[in-house]
Amino acid sequence: MILVFGKTGQVATELQRLAPGARFLDRAEADLSDPDTCAKRIAEIAPSAVINAAAYTAVDKAEEEEALATVINGDAPGAMARACAGLGVPMLHISTDYVFDGSGWTPWRPTDPVAPLNAYGRSKAAGETAIRDSGARHVILRCSWVFSAHGGNFVKTMLRLSETRDALKVVDDQVGGPTPARAIAAALLQIARQLQEGREGGTYHFAGRPMVSWAGFAREVFALSGRAVTVNEIDTRDYPTPARRPLNSRLDCATLETDFGIAPPDWRAGLAEVLQELQT
């Protein structure tokens, strides 16, 4: 039985749909601000694999709450991984493109050095290090620009804003691969099966294709949803935020396809599915 930390987030919601037989722990059962309790839950339940689909994701707020973000995104995954190592079961963990500094134009490879620009990125990098140091067989799956019909995300924000505006300013110099939460959930389950069969793990990237800017992504949202909204391109410097964002969020996903047979998803197909779900 697979144990999943997280129940209401975007990926956790999709995991519940795809793996109803898994055990899901919400915050009341396992609060990641209490890493020891998370480790105890693993020892008590003794699952065949653990997926951590919970995290502190408030990127801007993390600038003021870095200590808390680091406990949730760094210390808790480390405690989980050590518990998994003790049981001899694999752990899967979702990380982020924000561990990189966003320089250059080349897609980031899993082996590239990390250099986070913000507190959120530093907290996620700490989690990666703790998992690698735990001795657990693991997969760290770095994803970018996650979207779904659930929770808060860029797609839903654009749709909400379009209800009262016919023109929007959207950043055009940040480029990455939007990733459907459903595709991430499916990838995690496929990886979990292979890890349970004895395959070795490591750090991998999983993001949608083709690469696009936020402005380009917004245009596709409006085109597929039939909304007549003009997207005006702006630079990141014209949209200041408390946390610095990487300009280059391109992720090289080749090793995941080679090692696990999982190809990058077409985010446009995923977007069409999300929009259809939101309309029903």
Rank of each mutant, 00 (worst) to 15 (best):
F5T: 03
F5N: 00
F5P: 08
K7M: 05
T8N: 06
Q10T: 04
V11M: 11
Q16G: 11
Q16C: 12
L18T: 07
F24W: 10
L25A: 05
L25D: 09
A28Y: 03
E29Q: 13
D31S: 08
L32D: 04
D34T: 02
D34M: 09
A39T: 13
A39L: 03
K40S: 09
I42E: 04
I45K: 01
A46V: 13
A49S: 06
V50R: 02
I51H: 06
I51F: 04
N52Q: 01
N52L: 01
E63V: 10
E64C: 01
E65Y: 10
V71D: 00
G74F: 14
A76S: 14
A79I: 01
M80H: 05
A81V: 14
A81W: 14
C84W: 14
C84G: 06
C84E: 11
G86Y: 14
L87Y: 03
G88F: 07
P90H: 07
M91Y: 06
S95Y: 14
D97N: 07
S103C: 09
G104C: 05
W105I: 07
W105R: 13
T106H: 13
W108A: 09
W108C: 05
D112P: 08
V114Y: 14
V114W: 15
A115N: 11
N118T: 08
N118R: 10
N118G: 00
A119W: 14
S123W: 15
K124V: 08
G127Q: 04
G127W: 10
T129E: 12
I131T: 03
I131M: 06
I131F: 02
H138C: 02
L141Y: 02
R142Y: 09
S144Q: 08
W145T: 02
V146M: 15
F147K: 11
F147L: 06
S148H: 03
S148E: 00
A149N: 11
N153D: 03
F154I: 09
V155C: 04
K156G: 08
T157C: 05
L161V: 03
E163K: 15
K169H: 07
V170I: 14
D173N: 00
V175A: 04
G176C: 01
G176R: 11
A183C: 08
A186W: 07
L189E: 12
Q190D: 08
Q190L: 02
E197W: 05
R199C: 06
T203E: 11
Y204V: 01
H205I: 03
G208S: 02
A215F: 10
G216V: 01
G216Q: 12
A218K: 14
R219A: 13
V221I: 15
V221S: 11
L224H: 13
G226N: 04
R227I: 10
R227K: 15
V229D: 01
V231G: 05
N232F: 12
I234Y: 02
I234D: 00
D235E: 12
T241F: 09
P242F: 15
P242S: 13
R245F: 08
R245T: 12
N248K: 00
S249E: 10
L251A: 00
C253Y: 06
T255Y: 04
E257A: 14
A263G: 06
A263H: 07
W267T: 05
A269D: 12
G270N: 08
V274R: 13
L278M: 09
L278E: 03
L278W: 09
Q279A: 09
T280A: 06
